[in-house]
């Protein structure tokens, strides 16, 4: 409700001051992005137990990832960047709500972003905002960001015991460009894009990943490269997006 009031006020200000279709001035809309981590169709929760496609019970006490250079693409292929670098942290609810961005009116047909940090920004810790090293998503002995971090426990399919699961996914080769179809008609409106990330799909679609004997990857050795390639192939299928207009002038 608070946000709604704020949006209404700013929307009024913009539409009054800048938008005259008959005069050919560009009209503007608002868009925000909300992110939901899922297991199938259910909301994902830290420390809850789930079952992956390999049949192993697992959880996560930490789930964080970087999304960079998120852009809306209109029907003419024109792009507008919404956010530069965003750290998504399941433990920090505000990190799942990416704030309002002014966009030109238009018919948008896809949402593009990278899972990870682009190579221009990936090799220096001398950065602020969501790339601030204090968030612990950087390797300090080999400067580079951890694009995706899943730490938790799983039940080994061979021993039946609970074991730690440490997945630290990164390095330049791990960057995943992702493009998702959406349908958004922005016309002096406020809209929201719901971006969903299904953790179980990450570990199953199209490549099934079993954790047993495969539970510690930190992107540091050549033996991690096949694991990086597998996850990189799965990441695009783990995301989906839908858009809707919730306020029209």
């Amino acid at each position: 409700m608070k946000q709604f009031a704020l949006l209404l006020i700013t929307l009024c200000t913009i539409t009054i001051s800048s938008c005259r279709k008959d005069l050919g001035t560009k009209c503007k809309s608002y868009n925000r992005v909300n992110i939901t981590n899922l297991i199938g169709t259910d909301a994902f929760h830290l420390d809850s137990t789930y079952t992956n496609a390999a049949g192993e019970a697992y959880n996560a006490y930490m789930l964080k990832y970087y999304i960079s250079h998120m852009k809306l693409v209109n029907e003419n292929g024109e792009r507008v960047e919404l956010y530069a670098h965003e750290l998504i942290d399941q433990a920090v609810p505000s990190s799942l709500e990416l704030g309002d961005v002014i966009i030109p009116d238009g018919h948008y047909t896809s949402l593009e972003f990278n899972l990870g940090v682009d190579s221009l920004h990936n090799h220096s810790g001398d950065q602020a905002g969501d790339l601030d090293p204090m968030y612990g998503m950087i390797w300090t002995w080999n400067t580079g960001y951890i694009f995706f971090k899943h730490e938790g426990y799983f039940t080994s399919s061979t021993s039946g015991t609970e074991q730690p699961l440490i997945y630290h996914y990164g390095t330049d080769r791990a960057l995943v460009p992702i493009s998702l179809p959406i349908e958004l008609h922005a016309d002096r409106s406020a809209s929201v894009i719901n971006l969903q990330f299904d953790l179980n799909k990450l570990y199953s679609n199209p490549n099934t990943i079993a954790f047993t004997g495969n539970n510690n990857h930190q992107s540091i050795s050549t033996s991690d490269i096949p694991w990086i390639n597998t996850l990189r192939a799965n990441f695009p299928n783990a995301f989906s997006a839908s858009a809707f207009v919730f306020l029209q002038e």
Binding site: S124, G125, D126, D132, M134, W141, T143
Partner: peptide
């Protein structure tokens, strides 16, 4: 492993067998 003098600073501070601290 560190590409700049600024980035280097994090290394010894956060290394578990050196100063074993977090930047936060």
């Amino acid at each position: 492993g560190a590409n700049g003098l600024e980035s280097q600073v994090m290394g010894p501070i956060t290394n578990p067998i050196e100063m074993h601290e977090t930047m936060a």
